[in-house]
Design a protein around this nucleic acid. Sequence first.
DNA 1: AAATGTCACAACCGCCGCCAA
DNA 2: GTTGGCGGCGGTTGTGACATT
Length: 373
Amino acid sequence: MGRAPCCDKNGLKKGPWTPDEDQKLMDYIQKNGHGSWRTLPKNAGLQRCGKSCRLRWTNYLRPDIKRGRFSFEEEETIIQLHSVLGNKWSAIAARLPGRTDNEIKNYWNTHIRKRLLRMGIDPVTHSPRFDLLDLSSILGSQLYNSSQLNVSRLLGIHQPVVNPELIRLATSLLSSHRENSNNLLLQNLQENQLRNPEFQQQNQFQSFQPNQQLQHSIQAEVHHPASTASAVPCDTFFNEAQVMQGNNTMEPFQSNSTNFNCQGSQQNVWQDNAMVSNLSEDFVPVSIQQNYGLYGSNQPSFEDLVSENSNFQSNNISNQNFSFTSVLSTPSSSPTPLTSGSTYISTEDERDSYCSNMLKFEIPDILDMNDFM
DNA sequence: AAATGTCACAACCGCCGCCAA
DNA sequence: GTTGGCGGCGGTTGTGACATT
C-alpha cells in the first residue's frame, strides 16, 4: 500500500546550507529541472531530504527571487492583500513577483504586524482597536496636532475618556473609516500602476489571458475561507470581488461604481439581501463572467460567496467610491518586478507617518457626540 | 569592551490535501 | 476503497548581526 518512502530520514543533513550544497542543487536543477523532489537529493548528490531541497530552492536559490528591502508599494500591496486573504502567504506571494511566501511572512511578522499594532490596528482583522492603540504615543505625536486624527475631538473635547459607549462609538467610526482607508490604499495602488507603464502593459495583456492561478486561488478562497477572517467587513468582500474578477475588465465596474456611493454613514445601512441582489445583478460585468466563468457550473456565484461569508457586514459600507482597477491580480508569472521605479521609505517613522493616513477620518456632522456622553 | 536586548531571516516542523500504489 | 508518501503551506524556532546599555 502507498508509495515507498521518499528517502531514508536517518543520516540526512539538516541546518544551514553550505555554498557547496547550494552549488550542487543549482547545477542539478539548471541541468535537469527539479522534477521530483523526492529523487532530486540522491541524483544531485546531496545528503538532504527533498523537502529541504525544495525549500532551499524556492526560498533562496531560485533565480527570479528579488532580494533587498520591500518597497513601499510592495508593503501596501501586502497589507491590502492580507486584509483580503489573511495569512495566505503563498497567495500573497503569487501577486508579488520575485518575493517568496517565506519572505513576505517574515516581513509581515517583523515589520508590518508591529507597525499596525503600534497604530492600534488589529493585524488579524485589520480593524482599529482602541485596546491596542497606544494613545499616549498618538497624543504626543505630530499626528495628534494635525487635523488627520484628532483624538480629543473624536472622543469629545475636554472630557476624560471614561464612557464605554463613547469608546464603542469611536471604534465603530474607526471601523467604518477603515473602508476609506482601504480605498486610500487602493487609490495609491492604482496610481502606482498608472505611473508605471509596465503595469498597464501587463494589465492589457492579462485582460485577454485570464490568470489561471488567480482562478485557482479564488476557488481555494471560496472553499477554504481565510481562517483569520473572524470578522470580515464588507470591504473585504469587495476586495475578494476584485481578486475574483482578475484584472482589467474594470470599466463596467467603474461605470457602476456610483451604486456604491453612499451619502452618509447612517443613511446607508444596507440590507444584506438587497446588497446581494445588487452585487450579483449589477456588479459582475458580463465580460468578467465570460472570462472567468464566475457563474459557470463549477464556479461559485457571487451569492454563494456572500452566503458563505457569514460575517458579512453590509452596514460598514459608507462613502465608497469603488474603482476595481487593482494590483491584486498581478500575475505570478510576470517577469516584471512590481516595484519598478517604486519609492523607498528609509525609516520606520516615515512609514508610520505615511500609514497614519490610514487613520484619517472625520466624524460625520450628522452624529451628535453629546448623545453618547 | 562586555553584556544584554532586539531584529531579521533562513530553516525546520507539523499539518493537510492530493494522488499513486 | 484504503493507505501512506509527496508537495505545499503556515507557524515557529534558531541563530547571527546589529543596537543599546
